[in-house]
Design a binder for these strands. Structure first.
Length: 656
DNA sequence: CGGTTATAT
DNA sequence: GGATATAACCG
């Protein structure tokens, strides 16, 4: 999930308007690094000292179950979803078990393998759980445990790495931008780098000291490894395959390692930081991770798969060409799909090396202006940013169910919609513990028949009491729109989801409207409920579940009511008060302070969320309490910044 | 805005 | 391949 697709941003406009984008050359991999580079802090994606890491959890779902069950780290364990393995831990891989296997295969390969089925919602139970009578006909998978663990890991990384931008890229991986802290350490260790010589800031830095890479992780070699060693070291299908191309093996010119650069030193420092953080995560949360460290996101990601399991690998600029050349380019992010396939067919190519002879013009003529993105990637260039998405809260929330036996009756559709609605209610209300005003602006229903799938969506009203009934009846409506009076429905999958999840802000409505939703709206919702709700209580319904648990302490709305009007907000949990400076403004200014305050508040709530997750299961010590207050102090409202758009991809090429 | 497609784990 | 997530394209 969580992709940052290349097809966004401003390549289209910029390729013409601004500087030429194909402006790299030999100096790109071995740039001159000056005092200005060393001392400047906002060189962004073109910083020659840029250091990016990608860290992902090893067999994450399996690891979650091992932690949850407290099983020994040597125990082979697989996670099952119905009859399918969705995660295989490393001990189990030693037996040759792979994700493609069925339960039976796994047992055959390793009779004592521990098999855990994912948690499921079960009719008659209000919470997902680990049952032993799972049945896809009656149960619905829940991945919630993994989401929560994922948030814990992310929160811990953030705590451990102040100053490092972190972008959660999926449930089990994140990108890290180490550039800033690495420069600080560099200057601290080599203070002479701060002394700009008389010749000026654009003077190249003196040569760095040689680096002893021992103990820094796996240093990806500059020369391709000998063919004998060039075999997969385990059954990990995720490991990057290095196809020994004859060309490489024959003309393998064993180059001497060039002298270390300051960027190499920067990488080594990032490796230290990464290794420490990884170890903390392992000790504190029990998850091992694998990281890759290089000059940009895509290389970091590739480097991470160089060697997996509790390790990290470093890809220096000097090692990039030989690392990339034999690589199957369809393993590169965003080239794993149709685009990559089209390129492979067009040029009868499979490795990066195969494509290096294709000129930019040629590629652009076949795949559009934007294929410059591909052209650069093949040469180790990737200017996409690591963007801290700030809040850990997702923008959409989906509950999906595949129906092995396609349903034929409308009543079955309703049944599953209710099940899905129950899950959504649980999850959203859970998220509202942290950010009480979360508002999923639209509800979407998908249904698939055979191969073609369709969806219907509708605006979803803001409701404070988010109940199963509310969601289910809205879902039913969409269902009717979707299937109509069709009697021959053979629906093989349904999903119900919220999109556009946002914090309801004071922006649009009046403060009154925000704090106490207009009675008219309330009335309308009531009407909807009586109108569409046959008051049937489904076993899955969460009886007596407080839709917005507040621990009896938090009264967000009331707090906000009084505080927001006076342009301040006092956190009911830590007592910290935030003030928004009263601005002398006229009517046009439509309550900018209130928005700011709402933002400050929701960010602060996010902060508590992260803390809660990190502290889950531990006693709240005085230390954590004071730490919390301290950290809170530094929380300021972020500037509204338009993140510079990123390169676009080529998808439109494939559209009709 | 609503619906579809692509990509990824 | 199932369950999720996100972003872009297009009418």
């Amino acid at each position: 999930m969580a992709l940052e697709s290349p097809k966004k941003g401003l390549w289209k406009g910029k390729a013409k308007a601004s500087e030429p984008m194909g402006d790299f050359d030999e100096s790109d991999l071995n740039p001159v690094i000056t005092y200005r580079h060393m001392l400047s802090n906002n060189l962004g994606v073109r910083d020659p000292l840029r250091v990016i890491a990608l860290c992902d959890s090893d067999a994450f779902y399996a690891a979650c179950e091992m932690v949850r069950l407290g099983v020994d780290s040597e125990t082979p364990l697989v996670v099952l979803q119905w009859d399918m393995l969705i995660a295989v831990n490393y001990p189990a891989r030693k037996y040759g078990i792979s994700r493609m296997d069925k339960k039976k295969d796994a047992l055959k390969k390793c009779p004592h393998v521990k098999i855990v089925h994912v948690a499921t919602y079960k009719e008659g139970e209000k919470e997902p759980g680990y049952w032993d009578d799972v049945d896809t006909k009656t149960h619905k998978v829940s991945l919630d445990h993994y989401r929560r663990e994922s948030l814990k890991v992310a929160a811990l990384f953030k705590e451990l790495l102040p100053g490092v931008e972190i972008e959660k890229a999926s449930i089990d991986e994140a990108f890290f931008d180490y550039t800033r802290p690495v420069k600080e350490i560099l200057l601290q260790r080599y203070p002479y780098l701060a002394e700009v010589p008389p010749s000026g800031a654009d003077t190249p830095l003196p040569a760095p000291p040689p680096i002893n890479w021992d103990g820094f992780g796996n240093l990806i070699p500059i020369n391709p490894p000998p063919a004998e060693e060039n075999v997969p070291d385990d059954t990990n299908e995720a490991t990057v395959e290095r196809e020994p191309s004859p060309a490489v093996l024959e003309k393998k010119q064993d180059v001497e390692d060039p002298p270390a650069t300051w960027h190499d030193v920067a990488l080594s420092i990032a490796a230290e930081l990464m290794a420490k953080a990884k170890e903390e995560v392992r000790v504190k949360l029990g998850y091992t991770t694998s990281a890759g460290i290089s000059r940009n996101k895509f290389l970091a990601k590739l480097a991470a798969s160089y060697k997996k399991f509790n390790s990290h690998s470093i890809l220096r600029n000097s090692a990039i060409p030989n690392f990339l050349q034999p690589l199957n380019f369809q393993k590169i992010r965003f080239l794993g799909g149709k685009l990559g396939e089209a390129i492979a067919r067009e040029y009868d190519a499979s490795t990066v090396g195969d494509l290096l002879t294709i000129s930019l013009d040629e590629m652009q003529s076949k795949f559009g202006e934007e294929s410059i993105w591909v052209y650069e990637i093949l040469r180790g260039i990737d200017r996409s940013e690591v963007k801290d998405k700030g809040s850990t809260l997702n923008k959409s929330m989906l509950a999906a169910k595949n129906l092995p036996k396609p349903i034929t009756k409308a009543s079955e559709g309703k049944h599953w919609i209710r099940v899905l609605a129950a899950e959504l209610a649980l999850r959203l209300n859970d998220a509202r513990r942290i950010s009480p005003h979360l508002w999923p602006k639209t509800l979407v229903l998908h249904a698939r028949r055979g191969h073609d799938s369709r969806s219907k969506q509708a605006p979803f009203p803001f409701t404070r009491e988010l109940t199963v009934d509310t969601i289910a009846s809205a879902g039913d409506k969409l269902w009717k729109e979707l299937v109509g009076n069709n009697t021959t429905l053979k629906v093989s999958s349904v999903s119900l989801g919220f999109t556009n999840i946002d914090v309801a802000e004071t922006g649009q409505q009046t403060i009154e409207g925000f704090l106490k939703p207009p009675s008219s709206a309330k009335k309308r919702m009531r009407e909807l409920e009586v109108d569409l709700n046959p008051r049937v209580r489904h076993p899955l319904e969460i009886d007596g579940h407080d839709p917005c648990p507040s621990g009896g302490k938090e009264t967000p709305d009331d707090t906000t009511t009084t505080q927001a009007l006076s342009k301040s907000y006092t956190c009911p949990r830590c007592g910290k008060t935030f003030q928004v400076p009263a601005v002398d403004h006229d009517e046009e200014d439509e309550g900018g302070e209130d928005q700011l305050l709402a933002k400050v508040k929701s960010e602060h709530e996010d902060f508590h969320f992260a803390q809660d997750l990190a502290n889950e299961g531990q006693s709240h010590s005085i230390i954590t309490a004071s730490k919390r207050a301290e950290a809170t102090t530094t929380s300021k409202p972020r500037k509204k910044q338009k993140p510079p758009p990123e390169p676009r991809g080529i998808e439109k090429f494939f559209r009709k």
